Amino acid sequence: MNYAPRSTGMSYGPDVPSRPGYGSTRRMETPVAQGRWQGYGQPPPPVQEPERRQPPPPAGSGAPPKPRRRRRLGRVLLIIVLAFLVLIGATWLYLELNLNRVAALSDYQGRPAAAAGTNWLIVGSDSRADLSAEEQERLATGDAKGQRTDTMMLLHIPDNDTKPTLVSLLRDSYVDIPGKGKNKLNAAYALGGPKLLAQTVETNTGLHLDHYVEIGFGGFADMVDAVGGVEMCLKTPINDPLAGINLPAGCQELNGEQALGYVRTRATPRADLDRVIHQREFIGALTDKATSAGTLLNPFRLFPLIFNAPDAFTVDEGDHLHNLPSLAFAIGGASSGKTVTTTVPIGGSARTSGGGAAVVWDKAKSTKLFDALRTDQPVPQEAIVDAPR
């Protein structure tokens, strides 16, 4: 018998469609595989995408800078400030350690007691010891031997609001030199150096000197050149071959060589009296320019000035760099009228033991001058004796 299978309505052939769940050989796609979830159990966790950093805001958008950039800017500023402070400290230390010092001020029996204010003795030395033959010829200093003083000034800086006073001490002043008798004031320096000169000034003025500063020929010229020259206005021309200058009338900028000749020349109608006025005017203008913003903010002037200063100045062994700013500002005031300038009043003339001509201080007027300085009082008008050039 031929037993044929009974038709069940189901087909196993590939060309016969079938319905799911009724023996179909095709695998049914799951809802997850189809990307659809229809509530069968719990859904899978969502995929976390990595956080994307936002680009920095464009320039000019007004958005505040990020904290990291602010911190970086702060570090840069801190480094700049620290570098600047280190530079200042190194420069200060260099100058402090390299200043020339000499024993100029010392105690002795009968020395005037310290009083109000601060007193400086300012000396311009004509020593050629540190100048070569070529430099002596260039600066027209001559070949004189030994040490003398071309300039002597007394600066009083008060402790109150009274103006500072800059007093010229004529080199030919006839004074008592301790242990040497009577002679010209500049002879004290030649006979006993800075120490005897300082003692002579204290003895004859009754003022206690607190500080001493000296500048030589070469250092003076170098300082002038370092600041780019100093402008002076001459009412009359000056022609002095001995000082190496031939200057026309009018305003002009003097270099180091010309400046040195200008403060040394006696080729004027009043000779030494004009000379000390030139010295005060010029040293005031030089100091004023050296402390100006145009010099301090210009490295091409500031650094030559700094490196020339130790060779230019000699101070007392008890003086320090921090003593100099008040000196500089007081001297600089001479060119602007903030500092009173005068010469010790002259009362007559005399002859030295060697037959040289000397000048004698006016006792009454000079006493008023020095008493005013000792007590921090304004100098009486009758003790200010400089006449116009």
Results as ranks from 00 to 15, higher is better:
D371F: 09
P241R: 06
Y22Q: 14
H278M: 14
W92N: 12
R69P: 08
E214M: 11
G23N: 03
V227K: 09
G348A: 05
T236C: 03
N308T: 11
G39K: 05
V175R: 12
P46C: 01
T151L: 06
N204K: 12
G62K: 12
P67E: 06
D274F: 04
I177P: 15
R374F: 00
G228A: 04
A188I: 14
M10W: 15
G41M: 02
P345E: 07
G219I: 03
R148N: 12
P5F: 13
M1S: 14
R68P: 00
A103C: 05
N255W: 01
E257A: 15
P67D: 03
L247F: 10
I122D: 08
G142C: 04
L105P: 00
S24Q: 10
L166A: 09
F300M: 15
E281G: 05
P164F: 11
T291W: 09
L296D: 10
V123F: 12
R128L: 04
R275H: 09
R72Y: 01
A198D: 11
K66L: 14
G261E: 10
P17V: 04
D126C: 06
S125N: 13
L234T: 09
D288N: 15
A312S: 12
L254H: 11
G142M: 03
V359H: 02
H320P: 05
A188M: 14
T151E: 01
I122N: 07
G146N: 13
F329G: 10
R171M: 06
R111N: 08
L197Q: 14
N98C: 02
E202L: 00
R101T: 10
L169E: 05
E231W: 02
E202I: 00
D172F: 07
E281F: 00
N255D: 15
Q34F: 00
V224T: 04
N239C: 07
T341H: 07
A372K: 06
G332R: 02
S292N: 10
R75Y: 06
D288S: 15
S127I: 02
T118G: 00
G347R: 00
A372E: 06
G318E: 01
P45K: 06
D143Y: 04
A63S: 11
A115H: 07
K368S: 10
I238L: 04
T339Y: 03
D172Y: 06
A33I: 02
T25C: 07
I277V: 15
A113V: 08
P237W: 13
A334G: 05
F300G: 10
A140S: 15
P46M: 05
M10T: 12
T343P: 01
G9R: 08
D15S: 10
L78W: 01
F84W: 13
P45W: 01
E137N: 08
T314I: 11
D316A: 05
